[in-house]
Amino acid sequence: MNIRRVNRIDQLAQNVPPARDLWPAIAAAIEVDRAGALAESAPRRTRWLPAAGMAAAVALVTLGVFIGRISTPTPDTVAGLTPVQGEASIMPAALRDANYRKQRDALLVEVNTQLKAMPAAEREKVAASLATLRRSIGEIEAALGRDPANALLQELLVSSCQEEMRALTAVRDSGSQEI
């Protein structure tokens, strides 16, 4: 092993790269920031976007960190996730697809099982993050209800639902890798 010695404190390495690449989370936040800026410049009722989008991004990043740390299963109960009812009326066509909803409902059942097997601390954080994601999607849906023709909102809803599916899949498969 090569041991490095220094004569002065300013010879210590200033450059210490992080263990994980931080860029994906930063890029996600930038996209949310951009969506927020676009929404602010839009004509009406879109001020919710930055907060909802940022909450979703933070939830995703938090999930990514905690899924990677999950290791010791502990049986316990959890206030689980339940399939969301009554969303179909304002969802874009792709999300009203029966197959999508069936897959999501099945995934939620598996995720609840996985959550129950997690240590309590991780479980609470993952569940909270998923709830934040779900809440953000709900806010986007509510805004779409007021402004159904808004293409930006539709696009954001689809991408948020895709992110949710990705997060749910990662939770189901958790234990070995980050989202």
């Binding site: 450059n15 210490v16 790269p17 931080l22 936040a29 990043v61």
Partner: peptide, 28 residues
Amino acid sequence: HVGRVHGLCLRMTRNPDQAADCAQDAFI
């Protein structure tokens, strides 16, 4: 710049997870 920013955060926080979070937030 991430190496220098993270190095600074790591030495101030003494915690790799916190340092990464701080560096990430700083860039955002």
